[in-house]
């Protein structure tokens, strides 16, 4: 008997499953983080482009803006941004290599290496940001 697909929860509600890492492995963490950072970075791209329009208005407004973002709060936000980049970039590199069929069996190892490299790069960035 052919059973028609019953109307389950709406697709948007089901999308919560993308980010449900309970009882899941490290691959799901990587997947969920990649998606969250990806969407957030698109948001940042547009904020960045909008803010840079200040440059077109001449020195006054842009220089005042730079003074604002050099406060410790904004430097901390910069660190969050860098963390987002690192997660997205390093995991993306792993997805590219594995997704082209190379080193498929080493994907977990790559995840560990990427996590280590990312944390190291984040510490270096923090030192550079707050160092001076």
């Amino acid at each position: 008997m052919a059973v028609s697909t019953p109307s389950g929860p709406s697709r948007v509600r089901s999308a919560g499953r993308w980010f449900d890492v309970r009882h899941r492995g490290p691959g799901t963490w990587a997947y969920a983080l990649n998606r969250i950072t990806g969407l957030a970075l698109v948001g940042y791209l547009y904020i960045h482009l909008a803010v840079l329009s200040l440059l077109a208005r001449g020195p006054g407004s842009y220089d005042r803006f730079v003074d604002l973002v050099r406060s410790p709060l904004f430097l901390a936000l910069d660190l969050v941004l860098i963390a987002g980049w690192l997660i997205h970039a390093l995991n993306g590199l792993r997805l590219t290599v594995v997704g082209l069929g190379f080193g498929v069996r080493a994907q977990r190892t790559m995840l560990v290496v990427a996590t280590g490299a990312g944390l190291l790069a984040l510490v270096v960035s923090a030192v550079l940001l707050f160092g001076d």
């Binding site: 899941r24 492995g25 691959g27 990587a30 997947y31 998606r35 594995v98 997704g99 994907q107 977990r108």
Partner: peptide
């Protein structure tokens, strides 16, 4: 496929 590797796991 977005490489969560859950199927294999």
């Amino acid at each position: 496929c977005h490489s969560s590797w859950e199927c294999t796991q």
